[in-house]
Every structure is written in C-alpha cells, then in structure tokens.
Amino acid sequence: MAHKPELPKGYLGPQAKFGQFGLQTINHNNPEINLDVNEVEIELKMATPVKVTGNLIQMESLKELPEYVFTQTKEDVVKFLVWIPKAGYYKLQIYALPLSDDSKTLPGVYNYLINCTNTPKMVQPFPKQFAQWKEGCYLTEPLNIPKGSPINEIRFKVTIPNCKAAAIVAEGEWTHLEEKGSGNWEGVVCLEQFRGKDAKVTLNANYGGEESKYSTLLEYKI
C-alpha cells in the first residue's frame, strides 16, 4: 500500500489566483480525494469565462499523465474527467486564465491529491486537447475510441461555441458534421479502413472568415 506523500505547505487546495479569477469548487471541496474506483469528475464554477487545463502526476514515479485528464465546459461549469491508470497517489494540478487574457501561460489555481485504491475500469488516454478546445467546448461522445472496438460507425456529438462548420478528419479524409443548433454538431464517421494503422483522427472547427481555415480542437489515435 502506497504511503501518503509529503507535500509543501499550502500546496493543496486553492492557490492565489483561484478566487481572483472567480472560480469555486462545486463537488469536491476537499482537496484530498480518496477513491475505490479509478475515475472521478471534478466540477468548478466560473464567474466569468475562463480557459482551463489539468495535469495528472503519478506520485511514485513523478510521471506526468495529462492524457488521462479531459477538460470540458458547459455554460458556467468546467468539468475535469480524470481516469486513473493504476492504483496509487496522484496529484491533479489545475491551471486557468481568463478567456480575455491572451497570455500563453496558465497559472496554477488549484491542487488535488488523489488516492486511488482500486482500478475496476480499463482506461485508455483521452483525445489530445488543443488550445481552442478549452474555450467553452463540450464533448458528449466519443470520450475516446477504445482499441479493438467496432469503428465502422463512430457517432460524434459535440458543442463548439461560435463555430461555423465542423468536421472529422482521418488521414486527410473529411467528414463534415451537421449543425443541430445552439453550437451543437453531430455526425457518424466510418473509421474501419484505418484500423491498425495508428491513424490520427481530428475534430476541426471553422470559426468564419476563410471557408478553408479550420482549427484543430481534438486529436484521437486509433
């Protein structure tokens, strides 16, 4: 059984900018989280729009595992979905910056210590999240594309604020998603021809201006 790690004084919980940026915890007010499962969802409330990201660090090896943290936003709530690959202690470091601030560096705003004692769920990395994903986007499905699973009909359902067009691109092949109103986009994509080829599949959005100019929001690997 792993021993509880020693952390610097003041490391856990809210940091200086947390309140300044208008953030508050919703469902995990205690920065120490004990789990007997290997997934947890942490929610923060925003007073004004904030871009956020998270990093998971395994305490034993100090290995960074950002691919096991998925960040998404719905209205004034930002959610961090965390999947734990193996039992042990982990640090979850949350970074944030007001959306109106163009700075590329997000300061640390809150730190959690997670103690996971059991891993009943097989977990795989989430899709890689690019900068514009953190500006109010929300993914309903798929949270990942498990290796070995059927991929002839993958349903995509996503919310992208201020988006004019959205598409899934797999190795240069484009499938445009259909707009359902209120920034919601949906579509079904066949990826069977890419099975076993370590292909990159990206979610892309056009925000107006040049019709051919798309920003990459998410990147899956199949």
Rank of each mutant, 00 (worst) to 15 (best):
E39S: 14
E39Q: 15
V40Q: 14
E41N: 13
I42S: 06
L44V: 09
L44R: 04
K45S: 05
M46Y: 05
M46S: 09
A47E: 15
A47D: 12
T48G: 02
P49E: 03
P49Q: 08
K51F: 05
K51D: 14
K51H: 08
V52G: 02
T53I: 10
G54L: 04
N55E: 15
N55F: 07
N55H: 10
L56E: 00
I57K: 10
I57Q: 02
Q58N: 10
Q58A: 15
M59W: 09
M59Q: 08
M59A: 03
E60M: 13
E60H: 04
S61L: 01
K63M: 10
K63T: 13
E64C: 07
E64L: 09
L65P: 03
L65A: 15
L65M: 13
P66S: 07
E67I: 03
E67G: 07
E67Q: 15
E67V: 09
E67F: 03
Y68R: 00
Y68V: 00
Y68P: 00
V69Q: 09
V69C: 09
F70P: 10
T71E: 12
Q72V: 08
Q72W: 11
K74Q: 12
E75A: 06
D76C: 06
D76N: 15
V77E: 02
V77M: 02
V78G: 05
V78Y: 02
V78T: 15
K79M: 14
F80H: 01
F80W: 11
L81R: 14
V82C: 08
W83C: 03
W83E: 12
I84N: 00
K86A: 11
A87T: 10
A87E: 10
G88M: 05
G88W: 01
Y90Q: 00
Y90N: 00
K91H: 05
L92F: 07
Q93R: 13
Y95N: 12
A96C: 04
A96H: 07
P98Q: 07
S100W: 02
D101M: 06
D102A: 13
S103H: 11
S103R: 11
S103Q: 13
K104W: 02
T105R: 13
L106I: 04
L106Q: 14
P107S: 11
G108Q: 14
G108A: 14
G108M: 11
V109S: 04
Y110T: 03
N111H: 13
Y112G: 06
Y112E: 02
Y112S: 01
I114D: 00
I114M: 09
I114C: 03
